[in-house]
Design a protein around this nucleic acid. Structure first.
Lengths: 144, 144
DNA sequence: CATAAATAGGATAAAATTATCCGAAATAAA
DNA sequence: TTTATTTCGGATAATTTTATCCTATTTATG
């Protein structure tokens, strides 16, 4: 569904959100350890999330990654996915055709459109706050 | 969503189905030209589809790929996807976690489960016949 | 101002996916 | 039985994705 980079990005964002609620900044090292991802690669992805203003970073001593507490509930999964994987998953054809739309549908166009629209809706309506809270309230996630 | 190999595989299977209805076998060359894919790579994918009994092949002169007419309506998209991409898309976790289930859900487990179940249902209920017919009846597909 | 700590970013490597090439094996027809 | 045709399958190459490493830049603190 998503690239590995995107999976790491989502996990990282959730972990940063959780820590931001507690006023803590986190480093790529902490993040990678927590979400079980390669550290340097994760750092790259974090740069991308910073560029797309999903998370913010503070350089230098006592720096790290964080998300403005008041914005956590406004950051949607769709933003993270778009930042890393682009919008192919939102708009692309299920069979990878260049031209595929209502007027010129591929054989699976309608069937995929339904699914994709739901995926899109879900991603656009799921925010970091609920994901972060779902973990606090006992759902497992990081570390089995 | 799917790998390129899988996209080619689906397109190829549809094209073979269309031709099988007309009693014609097709070669990787014809297929690749029609679905706009690399020929040798497409041939590999066809081998895989043969191994998984999605299509059948006849070697030698006047050979080619075909599908038993009476079986076209029983071949589901899910079989093709599984043959080429495996069942990760059907069972895998949205965040790529090794362990992710009801008892041990990742943060997006429930949200993804809904989508994945619908995708699964769609793939398991879409057969080659309807896809082939949708083209015959005027919907565009191959070649714009 | 010097130092230590942290992100940014370029260069490179490894792995996976996508793509190509070529000879072997099979088969229908002459 | 020979020949032409066609799939099969192994080897290899190119590209993309994933991953690592090292240095530069930034910044808080002493």
């Amino acid at each position: 569904m998503f690239s590995k980079a995107c999976e790491y990005g989502i996990k990282a964002a959730i972990f940063i959100a959780i820590n931001s609620y507690e006023g803590k900044r986190v480093s790529p090292k902490e993040i990678a350890e927590e979400i079980d991802s390669p550290q340097a690669f994760t750092a790259k992805i974090l740069q991308e999330l910073v560029r797309h203003k999903v998370v913010s970073s503070v350089k230098g001593a006592y720096g790290g990654f964080e998300i403005d507490k008041t914005r956590i509930d406004s950051i949607k999964l769709s933003q993270i996915v778009k930042a890393i994987d682009g919008d192919k998953i939102f708009n692309g054809c299920g069979l990878g055709m260049e031209i595929c739309n209502e007027n010129h549908p591929c054989p699976v166009h309608d069937k995929f459109k339904t699914i994709r629209d739901e995926l899109k809706y879900m991603l656009e309506h799921t925010n970091l706050q609920e994901l972060a809270l779902s973990i606090k309230t006992g759902n497992s996630f990081f570390k089995v």
